[in-house]
Design a protein around this nucleic acid. Structure first.
Lengths: 182, 182
DNA sequence: ACGACCATGTAACATGTTACATGATTAC
DNA sequence: GTAATCATGTAACATGTTACATGGTCGT
């Protein structure tokens, strides 16, 4: 699993609350790893139980209280230990492809509409990644981790290449469906 | 979840055993949806419990007995019902990207080696997809589903575009690491 | 007034992974 | 003889999703 290590990785930048972690995940690697808030809170509890992080409740300046988590020495070495092993798993669960495979019963007009929607979705994703690029620059400055720029860049590049492939694919399918019609 | 529908989809082609289903998954959409045999057997049991499939044990001609599953009328309508709704989920769990993001502590020589390995892996995947193309032609003929050719083709095309993007990315990173060194 | 955002969580359920058990046949 | 393939499963555990609960603040 990567979630606990992603959380430790971010907490190693700076202490923060579960809510902030959820946001930073969304603002950065949600294309590669996403999690529900409920899962994040559960993981944080587990990590604290293991002694990898500690928490303290801070009264909210505006709004509710926050439970701020900080990484411990033990957490840092646990994280470093995980990083020192190579993790190369790339897992895909593409329900859309399974659906497409068996979708011969739906009519090609409906498929056309769906592919148009998908293309828009992919284009939005592309825009979103471009924004991520800027947000990450901000984060790295704020956390004084400018040296890690390189790693963020290669991950982002992968995101961009992936989305570009999806866009090209959707465009291809759309034009082949248009040929079919005429 | 897609697994039960993928199983129903294949059993809608022709009755077969859990072992065969595992093979056909590997030979076709493993790049988009994979499953352990233990999970397949569990799902089959559940599907039979729901009445979507029925099974019968056939003595193995050579080797062990086989439990052959066939889709029922109820199963067919369950599958068609699922297909009639659009399923557009594309889920990624890319541990490799999480690892890369926080991998600044490992040295760039090691990263270089890993990226070379990855490139080879992606190239193998590309070859494997090319084989899938042929195997699928065989399957469709055997199951007399030549009309579904189009849907298989678009799914395969997506697989190819995705792998091409990965290869391009790996090559990029490798050459930027080479520049760094010199 | 009303929805969006802030903030933390619990409980139940669904899905996926790992380890293990069994035993025959085929290929080298 | 030994590894690979055929074939089916159980049990325990890990991870992910969905639904729900609570209650304050901010903008329009």
């Amino acid at each position: 699993m990567s979630l606990p290590y992603a959380l430790l990785g971010f907490l190693n930048y700076i202490p923060m609350a579960g809510y902030d972690l959820k946001k930073i995940l969304n603002d950065s690697i949600k294309f590669f790893w996403s999690a529900q808030t409920s899962q994040i809170y559960r993981e944080l509890k587990a990590l604290e139980h293991e002694g990898y992080i500690v928490s303290e409740v801070k009264p909210g300046e505006k709004g509710p209280d926050k439970r701020i988590y900080s990484i411990t020495e033990s957490g840092i070495s646990h994280l470093k230990n995980w990083i020192s092993e190579v993790h190369t798993n790339e897992n895909i669960r593409n329900e859309f492809m399974v659906w497409l495979l068996f979708s011969s019963q739906i009519d090609s007009g409906e498929l056309y509409v769906e592919m148009k929607k998908k293309l828009k979705e992919y284009q939005k994703e592309y825009q979103s990644l471009k924004f991520v690029e800027n947000r990450i620059r901000d984060y790295l400055q704020r956390f004084r981790k400018e040296g890690e720029d390189f790693y963020w860049k290669i991950v982002l590049k992968r995101g961009l290449y992936d989305v570009e492939a999806k866009i090209k694919w959707a465009e291809d399918i759309i034009s082949s469906l248009e040929l079919k019609k005429s």
